[in-house]
């Protein structure tokens, strides 16, 4: 049994703010240790359930997605690390049996710790076929494309809600209760990790109850930027339609094409940034 663990940092136990999330933060080293330990808990759970191979995709954009501490990671796991990847889980293929998401944040607009969709710098929200979707949903969609179920996500209570909306069959582990975007009532990391380990094992032992996320085609995504200038920069790419001042849309039948294009549109939109920094 092959398990892929997709990771982020905002929903790691004990983490409530940017100080623990970026290399400039005073608590970055603590943050990456917490992250590695939460991931290790999921890895242990996977091996307990009989996994033969566990691959960890080191997410979270800060420090070029090199936040997981390789030497502290479970020795039997394989780590994918580094930046400028096309989209999360791009190395996934149909040989995997399950995807787990550790340390995530809710999509833009849900009132959790550091809610955002891809980036809070210039992106507001993404809708897919009319429904708001965040990173948890998009990652699970990639898994679904390969016929793999998304079976568990960890983070705050809003991550649990975001997850239930797209993956009603999946397990959720709440490691903290958000008070607002920057404060939470936190479980001790050791307790959080015991929950992650136990629930990951249970989720994998109940694989027959899980299902891949497959949506009706065509897939139509709309992406709302913060400013008109971001949408202007992004609409230059082929196939992208500007639908109002700050919003673009893209329609395709292919999940991977959708993910690649959204990522490209966001990078393109972001190139408009230097021109508006004084506004």
């Amino acid at each position: 049994m092959k398990v892929s663990i997709c990771t982020d940092m905002e929903g790691i136990s004990g983490i409530v703010d940017r100080n623990l999330l970026t290399p400039e933060g005073v608590d970055y080293e603590r943050g990456r240790r917490f992250m590695t330990e939460d991931i290790n808990a999921a890895i242990r759970g996977a091996f307990n359930a009989g996994a033969t191979e566990v691959i960890v995709s080191g997410g979270h954009g800060a420090n070029g997605a090199r936040n997981v501490l390789p030497e502290a990671l479970h020795p039997e796991a394989i780590l994918i690390s580094g930046h400028t990847r096309k989209f999360r889980l791009q190395s996934l293929d149909s040989s995997y049996d399950a995807v787990i998401q550790i340390g995530f944040h809710a999509r833009h607009g849900l009132q959790g710790i550091l809610d955002h969709t891809i980036t809070s710098r210039h992106v507001r929200e993404i809708h897919l076929n009319g429904r708001p979707i965040g990173e948890i949903g998009l990652n699970g969609l990639v898994a679904g494309y390969h016929g793999i179920p998304m079976i568990l996500a960890s983070g705050d209570q809003w991550v649990a809600q975001d997850t239930r909306e797209w993956f009603p069959w999946a397990k959720t582990v709440i490691v903290k209760y958000a008070i607002n975007r920057y404060a939470a009532k936190c479980l001790h990391p050791k307790r959080a990790q015991r929950l992650i380990e136990a629930e990951s094992e249970t989720a994998l032992r109940n694989l027959e109850k899980m299902q891949p996320l497959v949506l009706k085609k065509p897939l139509r995504a709309t992406l709302g930027f913060r400013l008109t200038t971001h949408a202007e920069a992004a609409e230059d790419a082929a196939g992208i339609e500007r639908i109002d001042s700050c919003t673009i849309s893209y329609t395709t039948d292919d999940v991977l094409d959708l993910l690649r294009t959204l990522r490209m549109a966001i990078r393109l939109g972001g190139t408009a940034e230097p021109r508006i920094t004084t506004a």
Binding site: N19, R30, I179
Partner: peptide, 29 residues
């Protein structure tokens, strides 16, 4: 440091920690 001074990993495991900024009730949120 935005109400993030206590090192959660050094508290007793069964304790909760309220950590982080912009709390409507400040220190006693």
């Amino acid at each position: 440091n935005g109400y993030r001074n206590i090192l959660i990993e050094e508290l007793p495991e069964d304790a909760w920690l309220i950590s982080g900024d912009e709390r409507p009730m400040g220190p006693i949120e």
